[in-house]
């Protein structure tokens, strides 16, 4: 009996050590995510409801796409405050273009859809291009540039709509695309997975990803190594803008109307997702798979708060607290590794 007890204790210790090692390997975030899901499954029966799961999946898909764009900009050492405004503008422009085209020639539905999507994507492309060009060529701080373009895009969106939702998009766009269920899952899930894979490949397997990381890590080094730093800076912002537009298309198609108030909290959440995923605000560091996980985490957290009927204003406060806490943790971890390195 004593021998059995003795035998058990080192095994338990070994198990704990292995768990610790595994945790360190996969990181804090997946563990947190699993704990959150387990708690919800155990204590909140509504969480696993079909409707709720779809809702969470849709929300997290949208956030994943914006956040992976935001991550690209964070990795080059900037950030993009205009993604929320781009989402609003894209929504309004897409809906307007489709409605106008449809009114002009009611039979040309595919044509109207294509034009609407193109116009919507152009919003993100142009805003991103302006952001990138100002940061790279004029060397204005990303904060000021994206704050400015954000204000401009919001203004244009409000001007176009007077704050009233834009209706009149083709039914097929809404029913067969926006609210479609493919192989048992909402359509945005597939789009976001596709985007994540694309960004992952770009980040890991291509020179583009390598250069984006190099620029964020040390612009000077990238420049003297012959990297066209301006081009890749502009590229990062442009991709970010276009991913924001894509998110907006998904949201608009689901809602069935173009709205200038579409973005909600997505701008802050996209930065939060990046920071929680360990993307460095100093640039150079960030992995899209972690960003996806943290987007999922944030969406589930928001969902949980909704299910628990927590006041939306309190939720906003809570989101702010999480962002600050994540940045603080990031800083602490930095300091700890630096101390460890120095000693």
């Amino acid at each position: 009996m004593t021998s059995a007890a003795l035998g058990a204790s080192p095994a338990a210790k070994g198990g704990a050590a292995a768990l610790g090692r595994a945790l360190r390997h996969v990181g804090f975030l997946p563990a947190l995510l699993i704990v959150l899901i387990v708690l919800l499954v155990l204590f909140e029966p509504r969480f696993m409801g079909m409707f709720n799961v779809f809702n969470v999946l849709r929300n997290s898909s949208a956030l994943m796409i914006v956040a992976s764009g935001q991550m690209l900009v964070l990795v080059v050492g900037g950030f993009d405050l205009s993604v929320g405004a781009v989402i609003a503008l894209t929504s309004v422009v897409t809906a307007k273009v489709m409605a106008v085209m449809l009114e002009a020639s009611p039979d040309e539905i595919p044509m109207a859809i294509a034009a609407g999507i193109a116009a919507g994507m152009a919003c993100g492309f142009i805003t991103g291009l302006i952001n990138g060009a100002c940061v790279a060529l004029l060397r204005i701080s990303p904060f000021m540039v994206t704050l400015g373009t954000s204000s401009i895009a919001t203004g244009v969106a409000l001007l176009l709509t007077n704050g009233i939702p834009v209706y009149g998009m083709p039914d097929t766009f809404v029913k067969d695309f926006g609210r479609a269920i493919w192989f048992g899952l909402p359509m945005p899930v597939y789009v976001s997975l596709f985007i994540l894979v694309l960004v992952w490949v770009m980040q890991r397997q291509t020179t583009v990803g390598r250069y984006i990381h190099a620029i964020g890590g040390n612009v000077q080094a990238a420049m003297v190594s012959g990297v066209n730093t301006n081009f890749y800076l502009i590229l990062a912002y442009t991709l970010c803008g276009m991913l924001a537009s894509l998110t907006s298309l998904l949201l608009t198609a689901r809602l069935g109307s173009g709205q200038a108030t579409m973005s909600g909290n997505l701008m802050l959440e996209s930065i939060a997702a990046g920071v929680i995923a360990g993307v460095s605000l100093r640039g150079g560091v960030g992995r899209v798979e972690m960003v996806a996980l943290s987007a999922l985490f944030l969406s589930i957290l928001t969902n949980a708060m909704n299910l628990l009927k927590i006041n939306s204003k309190i939720q906003t406060i809570f989101m702010g607290v999480i962002v600050v806490a994540a940045v603080a943790l990031d800083q602490l971890a930095k300091r700890r590794t630096r101390d460890a390195r120095e000693s």
Binding site: A214, G217, A221, V224, S225, G284, V285
Partner: peptide, 8 residues
């Protein structure tokens, strides 16, 4: 002055 990217 070194032209290396520290995090790479």
């Amino acid at each position: 002055e070194f032209s290396l990217v520290p995090e790479m």
